[in-house]
């Protein structure tokens, strides 16, 4: 089966005590335009909020936005919680202002991938790039199954 033949459900939200809603709305709009089913849980969402929504909607991926700079702290244990909740192999993506200060992105990315995220994006990434990767990654998973 190809991706186009089945609707893909994405849980989208902003993690933690973080009120940055603009990027969240843009991302939701971009995903919907590409035919994804978007479950947008909005700002101030906890890891549990993402996971609960993903279970109820049988989501294919979780897209975590984090703009406040506390991403590294907030994202810890996300994959482990998914495992615990029975959706351990869900596709996990994170992006935004994940860390503060001038840090080498390659290093930052490594840390998030090590945490169990399948993809991590630096500030300024275009939604187009994220969606392209998402399509490829999910297609790959589908074929792998």
């Amino acid at each position: 089966m190809t991706l186009a033949k089945r609707s893909i459900t994405i849980v989208l939200g902003v993690l933690g005590v973080d009120a940055h809603v603009v990027g969240n709305k843009i991302m939701a709009h971009a995903l919907e335009k590409e035919g994804f089913k978007v479950v947008n849980i909005g700002i101030f969402s906890t890891q549990e909020d993402f996971i609960k929504a993903a279970i109820e909607t049988a989501a294919d991926a979780i897209l975590v936005g984090s703009l406040c700079g506390h991403g590294e702290l907030e994202c810890q244990g996300f994959r482990e919680k998914c495992l615990e909740a029975g959706i351990g192999d869900i596709h996990l993506v994170v992006g935004g202002n994940l860390v503060v200060g001038k840090q080498d992105w390659a290093e930052v990315e490594k840390r998030f991938l090590k945490m169990g995220f399948n993809r991590a994006y630096p500030p300024g990434t275009s939604p187009k790039k994220v969606i392209e990767d998402l399509k490829n990654d999910l297609q790959e998973r589908l074929q792998g199954r």
Partner: peptide, 9 residues
């Protein structure tokens, strides 16, 4: 149980 189009199992 499940949203419309969501979890069926």
């Amino acid at each position: 149980g499940g949203t419309d189009g969501g979890n069926k199992e």
